[in-house]
Simulated assay, not measured.
Amino acid sequence: MWIARPLLVTLMHLLLESFAQRFSNGYFYQDIVNGNGNGEIYFSGVRLLVESTQHSVFAVQGSNVTLPCQFRYEPELNEPRRTRVKWFWQPAAGGGQEKDVIVAMGTRHRSYGSFKGRVRLRREAPGDASLVINPLEVDDTGRYRCEIIDGLEDESVVVDLEFRGVVFPYYSPRGRYRLNFLEAKQACEEQDATLATFDQLFTAWEEGLDWCNAGWLADGTVQYPVSVPREACGGTGFAPGVRSYGLRHHRLDRFDSFCFTSTVRGEVYFLQHPVKLSFTEAVRVCAEDGGEIAKVGQLYLAWRFRGLDHCDAGWLADGSVRYPVTRPRANCGPDHPGVRSFGFPPQHHGYGVYCYKA
């Protein structure tokens, strides 16, 4: 039967409009005419729901972590459906585009990039699409998105992963304000740490970190935390907080750095030795004891999470001399906990040494 083109277009529009009215918010509705001639809407489909029991997960570098994600249908299905699971990751520092982590359908799965071989789906129960990462690496923090795809329908949920650790200020052995952005990043990595994010520095400030020297952060800004306003630290006319110099030139501008470390593995200890040691001797005696000279980040973690408390100053791997105090007392520095620093003395001077065993 021949139908005029304008009439055909009109019929197509009516059909699409009718379908759009009956398919809404993941549900399919069916029109049924009742005895009074009024249209009644009856539910005749299922809806996919994706949920997480935690939207922020804290972990420690080098450990394993599970990012929760579960999916289900309303109403509940009698038989399982063929679904595809995809996890994406967006870095914490600087944002950027999402990157693939893993894709799975049934028993088949594939992981990508730096996550290859380190990730899997937990699958403890029907609908469990939780992501297991083992071991956690230094750059794994950020925003993860769990996406469930069922035919043309997909739903997702977001989980943020943060490391639990400690922020510490760090400056070059050459002196204050000697590091550009790339050098600051490298300096933190050499001390078993990374450049801190603003959120990590802000949390450290809330916990009492007070430091007048400005340092690089992971987003390329330069900031510093002040708990007690004073003339030597920006003046007394400003309230306590994290002061910012804003974004700076990565190569030309030079400051200190704020590092963040989260690897709680191994043991840091003060090596008892009958005589004071030069830096070269300190490196040697740690090796003879079956370990290695400790890094600054390792000492901070041992102080913060293992309660390392020792009043004797000791060499560290960067050539600095420091000691950790958790119980302030007479003849042990200031009246608050912290890692005390003697800076970078001449390497022929005699001190103790802090060693590390994995």
Rank of each mutant, 00 (worst) to 15 (best):
N36Q: 13
G37F: 04
R5T: 09
G338Q: 04
H249Q: 10
D139V: 04
Y112F: 15
E267K: 12
P328D: 06
G35C: 01
Q21P: 00
G338D: 05
D100C: 00
A93W: 02
T66H: 01
R145L: 11
A204F: 00
P68Q: 07
Q298M: 02
L8Y: 04
R327T: 07
R145Q: 14
K295P: 01
N36F: 07
V60Q: 15
A196M: 01
E189G: 03
R123K: 15
E124L: 12
G26C: 03
G165A: 07
D312R: 14
P80W: 02
Y323A: 11
L14V: 12
Q298I: 05
S56Q: 10
E189D: 02
G175N: 10
F279N: 10
D100Y: 01
Q191E: 15
A187Q: 11
E206F: 00
I32D: 02
E288V: 07
Q97G: 10
L209K: 05
A294L: 14
D150G: 05
H349E: 13
C212T: 06
I41T: 13
R243I: 06
S257D: 08
A125Y: 07
W2L: 12
H13E: 03
R329Q: 10
L11V: 13
T236H: 01
E79I: 04
D139W: 06
G333N: 06
C286V: 06
G62W: 13
V158W: 00
I148A: 10
F88Q: 09
K86N: 06
V103F: 01
F255I: 09
C259K: 10
E189V: 04
D312W: 01
T261L: 05
G338P: 01
S320K: 02
V158H: 02
Y245F: 14
L217S: 13
R108Q: 14
R5C: 05
G142W: 13
P328M: 02
A330H: 02
P345T: 08
V103W: 05
A196I: 02
G39L: 12
A125S: 15
P274F: 04
R118M: 09
V158T: 15
F58D: 08
V226K: 06
L182K: 13
L217W: 01
V57I: 14
